[in-house]
Amino acid sequence: MSSFWNDIKKPILALAPMEDVTDTSFRELVARISDPQCLHILFTEFTAVDGMNHPVGKERVSERLIVSESERKILAEKGIKLVAQIWGNKPEVFHKVACEITEEYDFDGIDLNMGCPVKNVVKQGSCSALIDQPTLAQEIILATKEATHLPVSVKTRTGIRQHDTDRWISQVLETKPAAITLHGRIQKQQSDGLADWNEIAKGARLRDELAPEIPFLGNGDVLSYQQACDYTKEYGLDGVMIGRGIFHNPWFFNPEERAYSKEEKLQQLILHTRLFERNWSGKRNFNILKRFYKIYTSGFPGASKMRAELMNANGYDEVYQLVGAHVDCSVYN
């Protein structure tokens, strides 16, 4: 069945789901500064179906699915799709939670995390552990598809202890997901070493043979928009998903690569802080923002000193006072 995945002009470009990164605040910031012709899909943070199914834990876990009104407005204006990513290991729970997400939220799709390599998650038999449990993985995909009219995609890796691309991707393709994103590392690598794009290409060739209608994206070590476009062509893909590359350049999703001024970077720092404060004050730890401040405080005189001061900040007001000496903070009030 065709879905929005099939309607996007290639190359399809997406920002990967990332823990404590792709919340509604950061997604909105990226959407605001991106060319809608270069950014097509955003994803939520990883959301545990067991948590969503827990009478007590649901309230906290469901924070990962929050979409602010301002983000929703930007996405609608730019035509950017938003997909909820979920993980777990019980088909019946996936079915139940997929029904709830479809009925209670307004997402454009659901993505199944079959690639997270974190050891305690894998020990539970979830995410990349499913690569060695293909029957269970297929049951999860089919149960989720049965529960919703939304397109159900899969993000995964090439193997656990070694590349197993042929066997694994063939088994995923049997379930006819709406799209597949393949990260070019095995679970054992975590984030170490380099992604193997030849393995990603191998998965795409299987797709060509078995289910050519299914969009196939690659993921791993892509650091620029041009590189994403080049890799799409070179490896015979439909597009690329960007992960840590966004930390090198939050303006990643723009065709023009240029140096951004101190003022532009600090304005985005303030915007991000305002959005985070508006969405999460009293709910999430302020210190989460500090990993982002490193993005905006580089490449200009005095950047390292400002970065060090921001790392010692204890709250939003300290940030506004510090950065306000260099750029007008009131624009984002």
Rank of each mutant, 00 (worst) to 15 (best):
F276M: 11
K265R: 15
Q268C: 15
M306N: 04
R258T: 10
I295M: 10
E277I: 09
G239D: 02
K265W: 12
Q267L: 14
Y316E: 05
K294T: 12
G282H: 09
N287C: 08
E257N: 12
R307S: 13
L217A: 11
D317G: 01
A259V: 07
K265A: 13
N254D: 06
S281A: 15
F253H: 03
I295Y: 01
V222N: 07
N314A: 12
W280G: 14
H326G: 01
I246H: 02
K305G: 06
K262C: 07
L269F: 02
N219V: 10
V240I: 15
S261F: 01
N285Y: 08
E256Q: 15
C229G: 04
E263F: 06
F276W: 05
F300I: 03
D230A: 15
D317C: 06
G243V: 08
D230H: 11
L269W: 00
L217E: 04
V319F: 05
H272M: 09
Y225C: 11
Q268W: 08
A303D: 01
Y260H: 12
L237I: 06
N249I: 00
A259R: 05
R291Q: 15
N285M: 13
M306K: 00
A228Y: 03
N219L: 13
K305Q: 14
K294R: 14
R291L: 10
I270A: 12
L271A: 13
F216A: 07
Y316G: 07
R244F: 01
Y293F: 14
S224M: 05
